[in-house]
């Protein structure tokens, strides 16, 4: 097991007279090395909160996160996080953003430049090495952000709806791109999305969370071999099952 979530609870203190907000209600799950796992659930169910806890940006109220058997506390280079809004430094160029983590790790200028250049090449960013983020398209910005995370070779890669603000064509292209990168590197990925199609297309496994306070209510394996056909019968079958679990969750809140 690379990642172990042990009974994680999270509640936020009441705001001026309101009730305590219970977001996570005991999440337990194990994740093997090299797997691509998606987290899906009703909107506002705490997917992002869970990811932030694993990334060490937020403490859990109860429970533990173990990585390779050791408990995690606080942000660490062992766990990478890709944000939905890219979160690139606007004052750094493509190269400067990609090499930022290596810089923090104290790597020499020449060495990290060379490493960053390799990623620029592999991520189809050649010609934009010296561009600032605002000069890049959304898809390119997210590729820079992914490169910035992967260059550190983290043991675990977290992605928080990374393609959520892209148009559907760019989104499809980036999904395929991410899979091709992952096939070569075999990173362990936890991918948060609210898009069932995306989860089924990308993942080895899909974890479905309940509404708040969230727990894992179902775990699906997607066996279809890659490259996957988005419209194959096998894909449709898994999609149908996931959607029915999600619908159950939403009916309980009375959204449907």
């Amino acid at each position: 097991m690379t990642l172990e979530l042990q009974d994680i609870y999270k509640s936020f203190p009441a705001e001026s007279g309101g009730e305590v907000l219970e977001v996570l209600g005991g999440i337990s799950a194990g994740l093997e090395r090299g797997r691509f796992v998606s987290l899906i659930g009703p909107s506002g169910c705490g997917k992002t909160t869970l990811l932030r806890i694993i990334a060490g940006l937020e403490p859990a109220s109860r429970g533990r996160v173990l990585l390779g058997g050791q408990p995690l506390s606080g942000p660490s280079r062992r766990v990478g996080l890709v944000f939905q809004q890219y979160a690139l430094m606007p004052w750094r160029t493509t190269l400067g953003n990609i090499e930022m983590g290596l810089e923090m790790a104290g790597q020499g200028r020449e060495e990290r430049r060379a490493a960053a250049r390799e990623y620029v090449e592999a991520f189809g960013l050649a010609g934009f090495e010296n561009s600032y983020p605002h000069q890049l398209s959304g898809g390119m910005q997210q590729r820079v952000a992914i490169a910035r995370t992967l260059i550190l070779q983290p043991e675990l890669v977290l992605m928080d709806e990374p393609f959520g603000s892209l148009d559907s064509q760019t989104r499809n292209a980036l999904q395929e791109f991410l899979l091709s990168v992952w096939r070569q590197r075999q990173d362990t990925i936890v991918f948060v999305t609210h898009n069932v199609d995306e989860a089924v297309f990308l993942s080895d496994e899909v974890l479905v969370l309940s509404r708040r306070p969230a727990r894992v209510v179902a775990r699906f394996s997607v066996e279809a071999p890659r490259p996957r056909d988005r419209t194959s019968r096998a894909s449709n079958q898994v999609r149908r099952e996931i959607l029915s679990v999600l619908k159950e969750q939403q009916e309980q809140v009375g959204l449907v």
């Binding site: 990334a55 060490g56 940006l57 942000p75 660490s76 280079r77 766990v79 990478g80 996080l81 944000f83 809004q85 979160a87 690139l88 430094m89 606007p90 004052w91 930022m100 983590g101 810089e103 923090m104 790790a105 910035r148 995370t149 550190l152």
Partner: peptide, 29 residues
Amino acid sequence: VSPVLVEAALTLGASRREVVKKVLLPGAL
């Protein structure tokens, strides 16, 4: 300066000092 940038730097292994030097200072420039 957007808190997301600070968090991004933290997940890239930045210390508090580095956050000030490499995120807050250029962001405030």
